[in-house]
Design a protein around this nucleic acid. Structure first.
Lengths: 213, 213, 213, 213
DNA sequence: TAGTAAACGAGACGGTACGTCAGGTCTTTTT
DNA sequence: AAAAAGACCTGACGTACCGTCTCGTTTACTA
């Protein structure tokens, strides 16, 4: 590898501390103010940074909040609780715990709402948050197959479709429960939900056939 | 500008038409502009109404959009397709069709996001949209019980819990599929999803006991 | 007269007090801050008015300052001191006194500087300030002619040219003395200047001939 | 060869070309943009120089423009046309020609305006521009005295006062004619003005006495 | 001829003001 | 009495320049 990093160009380098400070300040402001009352000027003040510095790095409020919220989901892990059902319960509980935090609730839903009219933003959300966490579904299935709880997937395309379905069902249900129904996604609820999900998946194996009984 | 009835001539009989005109203008603006770019001044112009009139009837942007969006969901019906599974598929498809419309996507998610910090708004959403559509789940179960597809529920409280779960799973999955994964909730997907949901519910009967074998 | 004034249309009328408050605040800010540090936001605050109100009435800083400064020169009068020379001295002293005020100094020169690149602004200055005060020269000459100190002008075009020359010489000399040389235009200086000016005008009557001895 | 300046110690010497390039770029920008739209960043780019270099040599916009404009007036000379009146006409015409150039108009008036609130800047203007050109008045009088057109001055203080008055009258009238009245200071006007000025000076000899008959 | 110290280009930085825009409120005239 | 019209205050927007501050890179004098 060359000693000359291609990124080190002339001029004063960007402050590495600023990025972290700005994202942290964004989350803090989301907690206190929510999405609509959050202003970039206020974030800049909280981060001890000039507004121009903020605009130099992010195109706007949406992009900033996506990045600030995406970091929250990196703390998700797949616990080894011994069985697929219990592993999944563990992840879902972690996910629910994150969504219980105000910065996640306000931020995530607001950018999703904005993304309905902004394809670039939606892609950013998918890449930064959704695709990044599909690792959990994949790891869970691999572990279950190793345990013999699930058969190996012969059809890769069908397998990917199932991953997507699982993700939509898990994320969707928890989000709806938490944000729309405004009820806590506590252990009892997660237990019931997981049982239905896994029973359904076991009973209805992925077959492309529409009309099978 | 909307083509209004010629009643807007003299005197003061405008009130009745104004509500509908404003809500329609709101949906039109949601389609064209999305939530964040929608302005009340613009809605007033589209509706052929003064801003004052608008503020006399709604407290602000959130309340107006909730009402504008809520009307969209009233067209949901429970079709009689002969079996529980197919009835549910029909409703889910209708729901997906509504969420495919831009005014529903932008408007609904935005007010949900705002509601994370505004209890009154969340309650308004719950009452106007969510609770109002639970009728579909109830009607579906009643019809299935009449058909003998489902046993009658002895425990009312447990039954209500199941209704909530179903609603969270259905609405959540469709919303996530549509808005976050940005994939169409088409017939094939709805079929697969419904099969998993119903299989799961059948295999995992609602028992409050967490630790029962 | 009709009761329906053509200017009184629908809607809330503009506040008449705001104009005066804004112009006074502008002069106050000119005194304290000078032209370059004067900001329209600050003027708005001083006037107890929103920035938008200010922008609704003036196109920018230049136009505002022209109007604010123009008012200062309306207090000039032609005193009757008994002779042409002494009348002129009186006016020049008044003019010097106005230019000694900071709001006039900073404001006037700055807009003149800007006007070098803005024909509309220059025309505004000419109309609002220069032409408006030529009344003094005209009144002075009329009174002198009435007294028999000056002969009547047979050639109107030549007379106008002389008025312009007098105005350029008087205003130019006082401004240069005050602002560039930074010396006071006090009674002694004004006396000397007036004597030279009047002697020159008397000795060199306006004749279009270039080569006359 | 110049004597070794004590300040020239170690290190890279300042680029001599940069000064000239910056001043030329400043005048170019004044022509194109005028004072208020001229920015130091733009001047730096035009001069092919970093902003830092510019700030290392001038304290700010005002100082830079004073220096850039001052150079323009160094080209003034006292022509020998045979008589005092015609010599003066020649100088005044040169002066008017310089003021007809946009970089002089915008730049000079703007710094004069700024100087109304900045004594250091005013002193810089006086030293760099005004006092430097008084040489023309002095040279003109000396030549006229040699020709016998003017008597020698016995009172040095009174003589200085007359020089100041002439300078204020000449510079002031030309500036006002050019910038405020926005009329050209052409040969005809300069001829008329010079005649009035010289007649006045001849008829009203400098006597300190205010009330003497 | 090798150091070294200042000048240099590049560009990020904390600020301040800009001119615009939307949210709501208030005050008129019109119907 | 309601509605249209539009002026008003508030506050955020995203941009432009300011003048300062690192950086890495010349460049000429000095040791």
């Amino acid at each position: 590898m060359q000693s000359r990093s291609p990124a080190s160009r002339a001029g004063r380098p960007r402050s590495t501390a600023a990025d972290a400070a700005i994202l942290a300040a964004t989350r803090e402001a989301l907690v206190e103010l929510g999405w609509s009352r959050l202003t970039l000027g206020d974030v800049a003040i909280r981060a001890g940074v000039a507004k121009t510095t903020l605009y130099r790095r992010w195109a706007g409020k949406n992009e900033l909040v996506v990045d600030a919220v995406a970091e929250l989901f990196d703390e998700l892990t797949l616990p080894d609780r011994g069985s697929l059902a219990e592993d999944i319960e563990g992840v879902v509980l972690q996910f629910a715990a994150i969504l219980a935090r105000p910065e996640a609730r306000s931020g995530l839903m607001a950018v999703v709402a904005e993304a309905t009219r902004d394809d670039a933003l939606r892609e950013r959300i998918r890449a930064s948050i959704v695709e990044r966490q599909k690792r959990l579904v994949l790891a869970g299935r691999a572990r279950a197959q190793a345990r013999g709880e699930l058969p190996s997937e012969p059809d890769a395309r069908e397998a990917a479709r199932t991953v997507d379905l699982i993700f939509d069902m898990v994320a969707g249900a928890v989000v709806h429960r938490t944000l729309v129904s405004a009820e806590p996604a506590d252990e009892e609820w997660v237990h019931g939900f997981t049982r239905v999900l896994l029973s359904g998946l076991a009973a209805a194996p992925d077959r492309g056939d529409r009309e099978a009984p």
